[in-house]
Write a protein that binds this DNA or RNA. Structure first.
Lengths: 112, 112
DNA sequence: TTATATACCTAATATTCTTATGTATATAAT
DNA sequence: ATTATATACATAAGAATATTAGGTATATAA
């Protein structure tokens, strides 16, 4: 697990990227997928994730659909057309930022 | 200039890395050096930088020395032994984090 | 029957940054 | 001369985002 300050500001980018690649996902599913893909190095907390999902829905970046699964409720989120554009921009910006940081921190370059 | 949320959490890492490479630097000098090295893509604000420098000094990561230059005051900061260790840890952690993000966001790998 | 996993949510608090403001000297431009 | 910009420090109010902790509820494994 990384120090919390390191991950700050990357939540939206991660969520938008994952949602852009799948038809729809629900909150809990996102936390598990990120945990799995990062081998537990990035753990999204619900207190950060849910408010962010609500905010992105309010901004028109995501649409939500509540579904009953057995007796439980799931809220599936999908990326809107606007959201897909923003997702690409965020990923591109992050890539650019990493290149800048690689130079600034004197690391060996890696994204080509 | 990157969106502010992207840069969040990287300030200490940047400052510690720069200070580790030089004997000593003062706050304004750090802002200018980062601006120069990143071609203006990362601009450190004074409201973020100075409190962080004070905090790191209080934590024993940095030592400060006030110097009169003409009629102006400069506060030179140096990294302590503890600080150098933390600087290395932070840079290593950031490199690891970037690799994780590269995988998670499906980017082409770059740090080798 | 107790713990863990699934699945949502919010509120108080903490952290960190932005924005704005203040002080003061030095220098370049009009 | 005077105005703008650069140098150089600092803090304080507010915004944004995350942590921590708590709440509700069902399903399943121990």
């Amino acid at each position: 697990m990384y120090s919390s300050e390191l991950i700050k500001g990357t939540l939206k980018t991660i969520v938008l990227k994952l949602l852009s690649e799948s038809d729809k996902m629900y909150g809990y599913e996102i936390t598990q997928k990120v945990k799995e893909l990062t081998a537990g190095k990035i753990l999204l907390t619900e207190g950060a994730l849910y408010p962010t999902l609500h905010a992105m829905e309010a901004e028109g970046i995501l649409t939500a659909e509540a579904v009953n699964v057995g007796n439980r409720i799931r809220k599936y989120y999908s990326v809107t057309k606007t959201g897909k554009k923003i997702a690409k921009e965020k990923v591109n910006e992050f890539e650019d930022f990493m290149n800048t940081m690689i130079f600034l921190l004197g690391l060996k370059p890696k994204i080509g």
